[in-house]
Design a protein around this nucleic acid. Structure first.
Length: 647
RNA sequence: GCCUUUGUAGCUCAGGGGUAGAGCACUUCCUUGGUAAGGAAGAGGUCCCGGGUUCAAUUCCCGGCAAAGGCUCCA
């Protein structure tokens, strides 16, 4: 009896019953077989050594497949557990899943604590066990036996997990002397793991429940080659160097003060200059797209948020209301701009001819974030959104969506963020009870988003059940220079607020209609966005954006006046430039300017002063030779404009 | 909010039961130097804050605040 195995390229191969994915791999080529970590059988990830069920679609997974990697790391978590069991007898295990970069295992070491000094010993033990090429053996276990096994071991965590599983669905995986409750799948044997690193240790509640015991979570990462581990560690170092908190300090962009309060950034002049550039960029782009700027105050009556529903949903976790000397008056620090914009819409009767009405505001909002959650500029308590609300007719949603997509693409392009995908978040396919708004409108909006994204040629992933209760959305997931993922621009359809604020417009039929609202913020929050671009560019911002484009360096103080003249003339050409007037040698001034990551250094001494030129040095590049200040200004402006080309 | 770790000069950090140090930055003077650190002198500290133990606390203990790494949450 033969079975047919269909490979991703469409070819079909015929094998005897009892064949495994690994057998198929070996049949194709020995080289492939050496690299196979797992297999995808009819869309499900399986052990490569498991017997194929019959006719099936088969994809062999290697390190180059995301699922291959996560299988590898999942198995590595087991290897870590095995090492821990040898080193710390009696250790109890929680869960040990793969994560985006590596894996972790939550363990209970009793009264022991674990410090970083013990990491090398753990790594050594992991590699020692890996070299034994211990095979991961899968075994289906009756529930009773599983319970007996862990009762004997005294591991209450695994017992709790087993308790929730159905008899007949329980599998154990065993490698070497270590057995773990696990759904699998796993790589063929531990020999694939050639490099291992324990990265950090942290506390984590059992099952994420703060009322339960806190376990020790060990984070680790492994690779099939030592070189890849070295590269990964290098990337981590690089990330540390690019940390926006460190660069923000070094480049004088922003600071925090205990006196001012946690999570409340103070923007220094250079940081503000950067921010202003972003704001002006966005304002100009929005103006071209028919947006109108509005301004709303930083506080609003509590009633406003009761109307919008925000008070009910988020009020308890928010800043407490502000009380006034008058009894009964309560105001909230603005957590959102949309309610204000709804009131602007409602301030007079609207005609269908007014739509879409696009109200934009760089609105600073305040949200209470738990203190442990605050992080540099990426998580703050007061931040400014490049917010706008588009009030439109249902039939305008798609067109508006496309325009917003264009705007987001402009932003990403101007900032060299070229690696991204769009995530379309739709309703849960089954449970629709939690969503507000008519089926018909949802259908229309979801279709509009899908079509808009397709027509714009976006690379998309669709996530069901990820929509907000008030409407579907599209988020841009961006990878930075270090391949870290950020959720930036967001576009959301909203049926809820127009309903709650009873917004209406008069249609061509002279009837009242409810507009659809689109929330959108291409940057999201300016604070967070600035943090991302600091890290993405490592502090070397694009020329159009950088706070200081050029610094003039006089060779000695005899040329300070000449330097000032040059700087003034540059300012007349809209170049952001300053003069280093310190009584220092030129080498020193260059070094400091290089460290400050100023894109251009203009050196002026005897030679230049007498010929009316400046010597131009580019950051990280070196000497570009002499030219007049005007020629330099042209160079800078041309380059900056090229970066903003067509925007 | 919870767990762990940390808090010493503007910055990076060393030290340690007897009231404190380095490098860089800063100020002054010397130097007027041509593409990544010129020299000298000086100034600068409530050793995060509050309590306790002690003859004596920056150091040890407790509490608070802030930061870092996690957990949970995120309009």
């Amino acid at each position: 009896m033969k079975i047919d195995v269909k490979l991703p390229d469409g070819s079909v191969r015929s094998y005897e019953q009892g064949v495994t994915a690994m057998d198929v791999a070996r049949d194709i080529s020995e080289g492939l077989a050496r690299n196979v970590l797992a297999a995808k059988v009819n869309g499900q990830v399986w052990d490569a050594g498991r017997v194929l069920p019959g006719d099936c679609d088969l994809q062999l997974l290697t390190w180059n497949d995301g699922e291959g990697k996560s299988t590898f790391w999942h198995s590595s978590a087991h290897l870590l557990a095995e090492a821990l069991e040898e080193l710390y007898p009696g250790v109890k295990f929680g869960i040990g899943p793969p994560i985006e970069n590596g894996f972790y295992y939550d363990v209970d070491l009793g009264d022991r604590t674990l410090s970083e000094h013990e990491f090398p010993a753990i790594e050594k033990k992991m590699l020692e066990l890996a070299r034994r090429k211990e095979v991961f053996e899968r075994r289906e276990v009756p529930k009773e036996e599983a319970i007996a096994y862990y009762r004997e071991k005294g591991d209450e965590y695994k017992l709790e997990l087993i308790d929730e599983l159905k008899d007949g669905e329980i599998t154990f995986y065993k490698q070497g002397e270590f057995t773990d409750l696990c759904r699998g799948p796993h790589i063929p044997d531990t020999g694939f793991i050639k490099a291992a690193k324990v990265l950090s240790v942290a506390g984590a509640y059992w099952r994420g429940d703060e009322t339960r015991k806190q376990l020790t979570r060990l984070y680790g990462i492994t690779f099939p080659k030592q070189k890849e581990l070295d590269e990964h560690l290098h990337l981590l170092e690089e990330a540390k160097k690019r940390d926006h908190r460190k660069l923000g300090k070094e480049l004088d962009l922003f600071t925090f003060s205990e006196r001012v309060g946690q999570g409340l950034p103070l923007w220094l002049p250079k940081g503000t200059a950067l921010r202003e550039r972003l704001v002006n960029f966005m304002k100009a782009a929005q103006e071209r797209d028919g947006y109108e700027q509005v301004v709303s105050p930083h506080i609003g009556s509590k009633q406003l948020y009761e109307t919008s529903g925000h008070w009910e949903k988020y009020g308890k976790d928010s800043f407490k209301p502000i009380n006034t000397p008058h009894e009964g008056e309560e105001f909230l620090l603005k957590p959102m701009n949309c309610p204000h914009h709804c009131e602007i819409f409602a301030s007079r009767p609207r005609s269908y001819k007014d739509l879409p009405l696009r109200l934009a505001e760089f609105g600073t909002v305040y949200r209470y974030e738990q203190s442990g959650e605050l992080h540099g500029l990426t998580r703050v308590r007061g931040f400014t959104q490049d917010d706008a609300h588009l009030f439109c007719r249902p039939d305008q949603v798609k067109e508006e969506f496309k325009k917003v997509i264009d705007l987001v693409l402009k932003v990403l392009k101007a900032l060299d963020l070229n690696d991204f995908e769009a995530q379309i978040s739709l309703r849960d396919q089954v449970d629709r009870s939690k969503y507000i708004g008519s089926d018909e409108n949802w259908e229309k909006a979801e279709q509009a988003i899908i079509e808009a994204a397709a027509e714009k040629g976006l690379k998309t992933v669709v996530e069901y059940g990820e929509a907000a209760f008030y409407g579907p959305k599209l988020d841009f997931m961006v990878r930075d220079a270090l391949r870290r993922k950020w959720q930036l621009g967001t576009i959301q359809v909203d049926y809820n607020l127009p309903e709650r604020f009873e917004l209406e417009y008069v249609g061509s039929d002279n009837q009242k209609h409810r507009p659809v609202m689109i929330h959108r913020a291409p940057f999201g929050s300016l604070e967070r966005f600035v943090a991302v671009i600091i890290e993405h560019h490592g502090g070397r911002f694009p020329l159009w954006l950088t706070p200081e484009q050029a610094i003039v360096l006089p060779i000695s103080d005899k040329f300070v006046d000449d330097a000032r003249r040059v700087a003034d003339s540059l300012k007349n050409h809209d170049i952001r430039a300053s003069v280093d007037e310190r009584n220092e040698k030129i080498g020193r001034k260059i070094r400091d300017a290089e460290l400050a990551k100023v894109p251009f250094m203009l050196i002026i001494g005897e030679k230049e002063a007498s010929t009316g030129t400046v010597s131009v040095r580019e950051h990280g590049q070196g000497d570009l030779g002499g030219m007049t200040a005007e020629a330099f200004a042209r160079l800078v402006n041309e380059r900056a404009e090229a970066q903003l080309q067509g925007l």
